[in-house]
């Protein structure tokens, strides 16, 4: 779990994401305190914790949407630094799905999916569209390709957003509370899509309160509180036999 100051040349190719001693402040407010986390390739990690515990901030640090001030973050063997080129390259390998979908409202679902492959990777339009249609098929909205985001339900929008990320062929997928903005009856379809993705071997870091999903899909559950990782355990152990009192308190509040 803990990092031991490896240099990037010595990075284990089996390790997808490594955070070591990461501190982050929003001006004077420290939101991450010495966070250590290693995610192996193909591993599915679910991050949970109370609101304000720093889970979203941590996951946003992994693709540098937030800058950390101390410690190291290594993604696919590349350490995140202020170098734009490095960040752009890392981001191409890391897909991200947001709570509010963040689809481009003025583009169709297909255009949402092809914009980045065409302009970032230089894929020809026809090829990008073929790939996009394949992924839309996979998230089960092939018939929505030519619709605008506003014409879709929340669940469909989130699945379109997942397809958009997958079109960049990422090695790692980050999910930042992907079902929190959805009506309850639409949560299932998004979780199913994510579970399917997990089955296909995608490396996933997922912030969510869906404990059923954590049980079903996660290799490990990480519990955060007040900017620290409090406890990490496989889901069976995490839910049946949590060690820390804060974990127990949290679980007693969300499991009924």
């Amino acid at each position: 779990m803990t990092a031991n100051g490896k240099t990037s040349e010595m990075v284990d190719p089996e390790i997808a994401v490594e955070l070591s001693g990461v501190d982050k402040w929003f001006s004077i407010l420290q939101v991450l305190h010495g966070v250590n986390l290693t995610v192996r390739c193909g591993e599915k990690v679910v991050v949970c914790g109370p609101s304000g515990s720093g889970k979203s901030t941590m996951i946003r640090c992994i693709n540098y949407l937030e800058k950390h001030q101390k410690g190291r973050i290594i993604v696919n063997g590349t350490e995140l630094t202020d170098n734009k080129k490095v960040i752009d390259r890392v981001r191409q390998d890391v897909g991200m799905v947001f709570q509010n979908f963040n689809l481009y409202p003025h583009l169709t679902v297909l255009e949402n999916c092809t914009l980045a492959p065409r302009w970032v990777k230089g894929v020809a339009r026809k090829d990008a569209e073929a790939v996009a249609r394949a992924y839309l098929e996979r998230v089960r909205i092939p018939d929505k390709a030519d619709f605008y985001p506003s014409q879709l339900s929340g669940g469909q929008q989130q699945r379109a957003a997942i397809a958009r990320s997958l079109c960049m062929n990422p090695k790692i997928m980050l999910f930042d509370e992907p079902t929190s903005a959805l009506d309850p009856e639409l949560v299932r379809e998004v979780l199913d899509t994510m579970a399917q993705l997990a089955n296909d071997g995608m490396t996933m870091v997922c912030v969510t309160h869906e404990m059923g999903f954590a049980r079903q899909v996660a290799d490990r559950v990480v519990f955060m509180d007040a900017g620290r990782i409090v406890e990490t355990a496989p889901p069976g152990e995490f839910f049946s036999n949590p060690k820390e009192s804060r974990t127990k308190a949290f679980l007693s509040q969300i499991l009924h």
Binding site: L65, D88, R91, M96, F98, N102, W119, M168
Partner: peptide
Amino acid sequence: RGMHDASASLGLKRWQHSVFIVLPLATR
């Protein structure tokens, strides 16, 4: 802010984000 997050996470360059996303949305 969400549009910026989406573009950044997809690896779009700043000018691409400005031209393809910000300009049409802001104009609208």
